[in-house]
């Protein structure tokens, strides 16, 4: 065999094996995620999750986000906009997967703010100021704290609530459910219990449109 033929066929065989392995792995992973999603729908929505949109909307997006994650910050308003674009038909439930260091304490602040009826306001204030309290993927809860001061919250109460067993349990529950749902990166979305086939904004829009077409026709 000619040397160049040998070299090129070896390179092609290795690359083809890589691509085939990737496709097999991805489809297996997709099936597992699908299966996990159907088996554990109860882990998807909890009573404590804040919502955008009415409870009787037939298309429900569950969003697992990390307040310290940049992509989550960029996607959050677009997902919220989806609920507003389809009033009464789409709702968004927010869950947390605080994978960044110290981010769980920030999520505890949000649940504590929720006790005073300002969960979403607090989340949006923190997302807007994210650059100030997240550095090198590490959240700084003390700096995050300062961005909650303008919201008219009882800060003393907030401080004691965020360390209360009830709030800690909520954060724990979100993290446990994220594990159950095989959420490994944020943001992750489930539409009526179905995971995205592959991660991406277009895939989310497609899935939401499919569910809308199925539910309202």
């Amino acid at each position: 065999m000619k040397k160049s033929t040998l070299f090129i066929s070896a390179a092609v065989i290795l690359l083809a094996a890589f691509v085939a392995g990737m496709l097999i792995f991805k489809s297996k992973q997709g099936e597992e995620a699908q299966q996990a999603a159907t088996e554990s729908r109860s882990a998807l929505v909890r009573m404590h999750s804040p919502m955008h949109g009415p409870a009787d909307a037939k298309v429900e997006i569950v969003e697992f986000l990390d307040p310290a994650c940049g992509t989550c910050r960029d996607f959050y308003p677009r997902v919220k906009q989806m609920a507003e674009d389809h009033p009464g038909q789409v709702r968004v439930a927010l869950r947390y997967a605080p994978f960044h260091a110290n981010s769980d304490q920030v999520v505890a602040m949000l649940y504590a703010a929720g006790k005073q009826g300002k969960h979403v306001e607090a989340l949006e204030a923190l997302l807007a100021a994210q650059n100030d309290w997240v550095a090198n993927h590490v959240a700084n809860p003390e700096r995050a704290w300062t961005h909650l001061e303008g919201l008219g919250l009882d800060m003393e109460q907030l401080r004691s609530d965020m360390n209360s067993p009830a709030v800690v349990a909520l954060v724990r529950q979100d993290l446990d459910d994220a594990t159950t749902m095989k959420v490994t990166a944020t943001p992750e979305y489930f539409v009526n219990g179905k995971p995205l086939p592959t991660w991406g904004w277009e895939q989310l829009v497609t899935l939401v449109n499919e569910e809308l077409a199925g539910a309202y026709h």
Partner: peptide, 26 residues
């Protein structure tokens, strides 16, 4: 040439393996 080719084969296999574990398996 054959010895060098084998070395290249090992390097390529290792590289693709590392990429698979990193990028595909995550």
């Amino acid at each position: 040439w054959t010895l060098l080719f084998l070395a290249w084969l090992v390097a390529t296999l290792s590289t693709l393996g590392a990429l698979f574990i990193g990028e595909v398996m995550g």
